[in-house]
Design a protein around this nucleic acid. Structure first.
Lengths: 257, 257
DNA sequence: CCAAAAGTGTTGTTTTTACACCCATGA
DNA sequence: TCATGGGTGTAAAAACAACACTTTTGG
């Protein structure tokens, strides 16, 4: 069968080139229709979803590997990425049918064994512009697409846990770094930005207070344009002042002490 | 020579038991004489200091490995540990004299090669009660001891970078989690706790405002005791309300949004 | 013309900062 | 007794939370 050939080929060609024991998984967030979305793969021969992930080549940093993986999955070159945790439970692949599956579908045992080894997984979260992503499945999956956060349950391996941890990390980021440049198109309206924050935090915010606070960071530029063609009053467009945004990313947004 | 035998023996006995490509390094902070200290090893045959570190056994989580390493280095069983970053630059061991050194001092090339492989290092920071630590060197070092933060320069490999990142991570922790239970003895005075915060933040704080803020977290218990025998007015002793402290650790201390 | 969303300011409350005096102790 | 550090309160400023009316637009 075709799908199985893919699998066989994949490990034959590349399995041995990767560093052993190390993998990475990416929780890719996008924002669309006023909702946070996460990019997931539908695994072949398995009724489960998985985070896009991959392995580390000998000459790569983890960040470079993550960028490579995400380029393959999304077509994007420039992605905001953040390492957030290493998942190292020796049992994290237990209950994993993948290795068994692989053999069952004709994998060479030696190659299948590569998958059977223990892997640590370095978790990354990524924030991307939904509209620029062109999702492509990998060799182990037969589709790749966006899902609502509440649809991201029952993932493969410990990916539920990785996903939850990523969500937590993104929420934490809001408190010391700006978010939005990577998730929104270049031009956006204030309500859109607010929806983004509300979705990430999963709670409603007051329009006026939100606006004041965001402005106080000094990272927004108001454009001389409005979004037209939509119902109701035309909202103004904004863009991030990239210079100040980057500065805020590095320095953090005030602190407690 | 004795030291070289140690090295030979070490890899012979254990080198192959560890997972390849993965190491961990710990930045252990203690507090003494109103100063933050960091635990460092003096490397054998090398005029450089290094962070205590180690490798991962097949059945361990990273956290368990870090605890094992720190038990060996400090004698402590209970240590506050936090993963904070993975250092994965393929060149991070370049300029490393270690592998060359090992061969030069009679290492079996095959064994020395184990050290020559590429390692990722998972960085942990640890907060410990200075007075309970009994520092012990490892097989690659000839002493282990506390250093002031400004003495932690010119470390081996990329340990300078790891150290700086750890410091940054601890500072960040102050803004969303309490710190102190792990660094101070059971009973301590308010000024001692304040010194601790001041040292970590590297800036002076107002006594009264500090006290108010710390109290507002509701994690302190004031004891019916005073520290006697010291000059000046006897300060009251406090201890952490462990239950509430743990809760604050988990939940975080308020947030921005 | 009306329903729905956008824009904008003010006020009361809470939190943060800045600051000064008295007290206890060992030297 | 005095020098040193510990203990405590208050007032001004800043940040935050709550809240309502007017404007614009497409349907």
């Amino acid at each position: 069968m075709e799908a199985e050939d893919d699998l066989l080929q994949w490990t034959r060609k590349e399995g041995n080139e990767y560093l052993s024991h190390i993998s990475l998984d990416c929780v890719v967030f996008g924002f669309h229709a006023n909702q946070l979305k996460v990019l997931l793969l539908k695994m072949k021969h398995l009724d489960q979803l998985a985070l896009p992930g991959g392995f580390l080549l000998p000459e790569e940093t983890l960040e470079e590997a993550a960028i490579r993986v995400l380029r393959e999955r999304t077509g994007l070159e420039d992605i905001f990425l953040q390492q957030f945790h290493v998942f190292s439970d020796p049992g994290r692949a237990e209950g994993n049918k993948r290795c068994e599956e692989l053999k069952a579908i004709g994998f060479h045992p030696e190659k299948a064994a590569w998958f059977a080894q223990r892997f640590l997984s370095v978790g990354f979260y990524a924030l991307v512009d939904f509209s620029l992503v062109d999702p492509k499945p990998d060799a182990l999956s037969d589709s790749c697409g966006w899902h609502n956060l509440d649809g991201a349950l029952g993932l493969v391996l410990d990916h539920d846990q990785i996903f939850q941890a990523a969500l937590h990390a993104v929420r934490a980021q809001l408190n010391y770094q700006p978010v939005g440049y990577n998730l929104l198109p270049k031009k956006f309206t204030m309500p859109e930005l607010q929806r983004l924050y509300e979705t990430i935090l999963d709670k409603p915010l007051d329009r006026r207070n939100f606006q004041r606070k965001i402005f106080s960071y000094g990272i927004l530029r108001r454009l001389d344009e409005k979004r037209t063609g939509v119902a109701h009053k035309a909202p103004s467009l904004y863009s991030f002042d990239l210079r100040k945004y980057q500065k805020a990313l590095k320095q953090g947004l005030e602190g407690g002490w």
